[in-house]
Each structure stands twice: as C-alpha cells, then as structure tokens.
C-alpha cells in the first residue's frame, strides 16, 4: 500500500474546509432555490473529502463507509428537495427563497431587508443590434375566429 503521510491528509482537510465554507456561503447568500440546493450538496462533498482522507490516513475503511452513508443521505435530500422546489414554484411561479419568509415562527419578527429590485445589479445589454425578422406590411387584418382555439380542437 502506498504511504499516505500526514502532509497529504492535510491537503485533503484544507480542500475539504474550503469546499465546506464556499458551500455555506452559497447557501446563505443566494436566493435561487436550485443554487441553494447545489451549495448544500457542495458542503457534503467537502465533508466527504475530509472523511476519505482521514480513513486513508488511519488505514481503515470507516471513512469510506461514512461517505457511502453521506451519498445515500444526499440522494434522499435531492429527491425531497427537488419535490419541494417543484411545489414551491407552482405556488409562487418564482424560485426566490425570500418569498417564503412567512414560514418563520409566528412570534419571530420579519427579517428587514431591502427588496430584490433595489439590490439587483443591472443587466448588461446584449451586444449588437437585436435582429427581429422584418415583415412586409400586411394589408387587411384577417378575420379572427370567434371561438377560442381550445374549443375548436374537436
């Protein structure tokens, strides 16, 4: 078995710590539910790196077995989280998590924060002229059918 000295273990712990902190940052600061879900998975990846490094350093399988359990929990979390995202999107037609702040405790005061529109950065305009097809001017407007199209599908 190739040696796995302490310095290599340290590498794994440092990378794992960085992934954990970045995932936490994404989970706390992003508003999009899907990006929050990805950040939570990234925290799990950082932990898994740490566990595998420790298991290899001590020469036993427990770290890898813990990681398999983490993988299982991540799969369960993904299924439930994506089902929740689907339902929440159906209710509000938006993935913004701050729309759901009435799920807090009833005694808790609402978290005062500026609205999304005040904080959102401006969108850079698309480069170049927008190209829409040029249509020649039509003559008379055609007669519209009076019944909506859904009723005509028979």
């Amino acid at each position: 078995m190739t040696p796995f000295p302490f310095e290599l273990l340290m590498n794994y712990l440092l990378v794992g710590a960085a992934l954990m902190a970045l995932g936490m940052l994404g989970f706390l600061s992003r508003r999009n539910l899907i990006v929050m879900f990805l950040s939570a998975e990234m925290m799990l990846q950082g932990t898994a790196l740490t566990l595998v490094g420790f298991g290899r350093y001590h020469g036993n399988w427990t770290g890898q077995i813990f990681t398999i359990v983490i993988l299982t929990v991540a799969a369960c979390e993904a299924s439930v989280a994506l089902a929740l995202i689907l339902i929440l999107f159906k209710r509000r037609s938006s993935l913004d998590v701050t729309l759901w702040n009435e799920l807090r405790e009833s005694t808790q005061a609402p978290f005062e924060e500026p609205t999304v529109e005040e904080e959102a950065e401006s969108v850079a305009p698309a480069l170049g002229p927008e190209s829409y097809p040029h249509l020649t001017r039509a003559g008379l407007e055609p007669a519209h059918p009076t019944s909506p199209w859904i009723e005509r599908r028979k």
Binding site: L25, L28, S29, L95, A120, E121
Partner: peptide, 14 residues
C-alpha cells in the same frame, strides 16, 4: 431574473 442578480446580505454572509 432579479433574484439571480441579487445576493442576500452578501457582506454579512461572506
């Protein structure tokens, strides 16, 4: 989408 362009309390979270 505006919520993709506005992080939530980015200073404190960072």
């Amino acid at each position: 989408a505006p919520y993709d362009r506005a992080a939530r309390a980015p200073g404190r979270a960072t």
